[in-house]
Design a protein around this nucleic acid. Structure first.
Length: 461
RNA sequence: GGCCCUAUCGUCUAAUGGUUAGGACAUCAGGUUUUCAACCUGGCAAUCGGGGUUCGACUCCCCGUGGGGUCACCA
């Protein structure tokens, strides 16, 4: 059975890159009727926090990326790692190393100076275990890396990748029996969880031969690998917090819709090869292909996210959208927020936009520059006349306001001469919904009040 | 510095070795709108450089160059 896993370390919020890794693992597993598993890599006690673990769960759930089975936590698996560690120590594929940090730093520096791979090929690698156990000090446990051997693996996305063991060296697999390190725990867990496909970020390519070597030393079957390119920022560098948020939670908070986020992230490095760009999660499961994932890094472009999100907002049914907009809207007696949402759904890129766009609907007193009331080169008295006409028309009518306004507007020398001052009087804004929509939302009484205020405003100066 | 990955419009990307190098976002122009948005039409815009292989190269190979990753007692 196909099994994939998402294995974040709980040291920060779930970010764009992590989400894409999770998504691709999810899609690949689901389209093969396999399992998508979740493993928390929290062996680093200093940096791992429960709150981040929770944050990761919550956000995956919000995005409908549900995992199978229960979550594995590395911190709960110490005993298992210990058994494998002892096994490797005993069969000589790992050894205790007593080198101090200072010695290693010096060695590294020297190697770089000589233009050689800065890796450690330990002087303790031949020290028998029995002797090592008698020796004083705080040794770490290193893998005894085979010398000058080419490790080749076939990456599902990139094809064959070859690395020579001389460029790897005897890497540390555990601080001691009770404190195993990443490459080791990862190898053990992928084996024990029977992971068939390891899909992860490109930064793990150098770790892959290490994990293969470890797997070989333990007689594990080797899984398939696929390495995703990195997601970059506008400056073509690794996406950093500096340029806006990278945390998924922030996008959710701003009112980017989960299916839009999924759709957008899926297209960062993958596409179906057709013109279809709007994809639901189910459709993605069907059409996704790991082999078609692109090899080069993709720049995170918020404009496209905005566009996709706008598409999803416009597609949504009004009741549901209104519910989702509620947190971003003010409340006022007499105002039906459903009408507000209807008037603005075509103008939103993300839900939070609606707050600023509609603030004027809820205000008791509008604050705008008098000049705004003037359409092109209208005279003050023309503006007043337009507003007065509008005032009377609205006063006398309760129905079909839109048609009546247009009919009246057509009598004017230009439609704008009538409509613009009215719209500004009602909204106080350069850009807003149409006058009829505003009247429909705030009601006749409030509309008349606003037009009168505008007239008074004009007269005053 | 060693090793590894990578390179098509500004961005995301498409193109069994043969296409006027296609689409989308952004942008620009026009239409529709009182305005803004939405919508419709159209325009601008790319194969990193140099060598090969080939009748023919975005595509394959080599050498550069750029970008990225990694070389932790982090993951």
């Amino acid at each position: 059975m196909i099994k994939t896993r998402f294995a974040p370390s709980p040291t920060g919020p779930l970010h764009i890159g992590g989400l894409r890794t999770a998504l691709f693992n999810f899609l690949f597993a689901k389209q093969n009727k396999g399992e998508f598993l979740l493993r928390i890599e929290d062996t680093d006690k200093k940096r791992s926090e429960k709150k981040w673990e929770k944050e990761i769960f919550e956000n995956l759930e919000k995005l409908n990326l549900f995992w199978d089975n229960k979550v594995e936590r590395q911190s709960k698996r110490k005993e298992i790692y210990k058994i494998y560690l002892e096994k490797m120590l005993e069969n000589g594929t790992a050894y205790y190393c007593f080198c101090t940090k200072e010695e290693l730093d010096k060695e590294r520096e020297e190697l770089i100076k000589q233009g050689r791979a800065p890796v450690h090929q330990g002087k303790y690698r031949t020290l028998p275990l029995k002797e090592a156990l008698k020796k004083n000090g705080n040794p770490v446990i290193r893998f005894k890396c085979p010398l000058n051997k080419d490790i080749v693996f076939h990456d599902l996305i990139r094809g064959a990748i070859k690395i020579n063991t001389n460029d790897i060296g005897d890497f540390v697999i555990a601080k001691d029996l009770n404190n195993p390190l990443y490459n080791f725990t990862c190898t053990i867990d992928d084996y024990e969880m029977q992971i068939s496909h390891v899909i992860r970020g490109e930064e793990h390519i150098p770790n892959t031969p290490k994990q293969i070597l470890l797997g070989e030393a333990l007689n594990f079957p080797i899984p398939e690998f696929a390495h995703l390119s990195l997601i970059l920022g506008k400056d073509k560098r690794k996406l950093s917090k500096r340029e806006g948020s990278t945390a998924i939670a922030d996008y959710l908070k701003q009112g980017y819709l989960p299916p839009a986020i999924i759709n957008f992230i899926a297209f960062l490095g993958w596409n179906p090869g057709t013109d279809k760009e709007i994809y639901s999660l189910d459709e993605l499961i069907k059409d996704f292909s790991i082999k078609k994932v692109s090899k080069s890094g993709a720049i995170f472009n918020i404009d496209k996210l905005d566009w996709i999100n706008g598409m999803y907002i416009r597609k949504m049914n009004l009741d549901e959208l209104t519910q989702k907009c509620l947190p971003y809207l003010k409340q006022k007696k007499g105002i039906d927020n459903k009408k507000v949402v209807l008037a603005y759904k075509d103008r939103l890129k993300k839900l939070e936009d609606i707050t600023k766009l509609t603030d004027y609907l809820y205000q008791d007193k509008l604050n705008y520059n008098k000049e705004l009331l003037r359409w092109k080169d209208m005279q003050d008295r023309e503006v007043k006349k337009s507003l007065t006409d509008a005032l009377n028309l609205i006063k006398e009518n309760n129905e079909n306001i839109k048609e009546k306004l247009i009919k009246e507007a057509k009598k004017a020398s230009s439609i704008g001469n009538f409509m613009w001052p009215l719209r500004v009087a009602l909204s106080g804004k350069k850009a807003s919904a149409g006058p009829d929509e505003i009247i429909n939302i705030i009601g006749k009484e409030e509309s008349l009040k606003r037009i009168q205020s505008a007239l008074a405003f004009l007269t005053k100066s």
